[in-house]
Amino acid sequence: MTEINKVIQNKIAIDKLNLFYGKFQALISVSMPVQEKMITALIGPSGCGKSTLLRSLNRMNDLIHGVKITGSVLLDEIDIYNSSLEVAELRKRVGMVFQRPNPFPLSIYENVVYGLRVAGIRNKKESDEIAEKSLRGAWLWDQVKDKLDHPALELPLDQQQRLVIARLLAVQPEVILMDEPCSALDPIATMKIEELMIELKKDYTIVIVTHNMQQASRVSDFTGYMLMGEMIEFNQTKNIFTNPSKKLTEDYISGKYG
C-alpha cells in the first residue's frame, strides 16, 4: 500500500483515515491513493464503508451530527481536513454524482449554469459557451440543444444523470466522485454512462462506488475492496479481478462472500 502511495503521483492520498459516527467506527485506518486522471473503484458489501469513504473525499460527512474524523486526506498534498481550504471551494474542486439523478426543478439550461450563477458569472455569452461545452462533455448536447428551456425533470433518467454530470463540468472540477451512478439506470443507459466515464478520465480524476463488480472491472484502473470499515486490498483492477492477493477479496469478487 505505502509503496503504491510512493510510486504514483497522487491526486488524492488518504492516510490512516478513521471515521466515527458517534461510537460506531465506520472507517478503520483506511489508506489509499487516488491517481490523477484515472478511475478508482471502491467495491464491497453494503455497509462496508465505501460510500462513507467516498463522501469523506469532499467532506460530505461533516453534515452528519456526531462525526469524528482522524487521519488525513490530501488533495494535491493539502490536507482537506486541516487547512484553510474552504468547504465550498473543496466541493467545487471535488464534485459528486449521486445514485439517483438530482437535477434542480429548473430548465435544462438553468441546471447547467447554476454553479456559474453561484460563482457570480452572469454574462450571457460566457454562460452559453460554458453550457454548450459542458453538455457536449457529458454527451448530452445533441439530445437537448433544441430544448434547453424545457424542464430538466422531463428528461429520461440517464439523460438526467448526464445533465447532473454536465452541471458538475460547468464549474470545472478536478475530481468527480460517483456514488453508484448507474444503479437507477437500465443496462443501455449504464453503458452510456460507463463510456462517458472513460471519456471524462482524459481530463478528470474519477472515484466511483459501485455494487456492480463487472462495472468496476470494466471501467476502473484501480480497485479497492472494503469490508467492515477496512480497506482489505487495493491494487490495479486487473490484478484484483484475476489474482487478488487476499482470500477475502477472492471470496467477494467470485460471489462466495456471505
Partner: peptide, 9 residues
C-alpha cells in the same frame, strides 16, 4: 456466470 479469479482460471 462471468467467473473471475480462481473460477476463471
Amino acid at each position: 456466470f462471468q467467473p473471475v479469479a480462481v473460477d476463471l482460471r
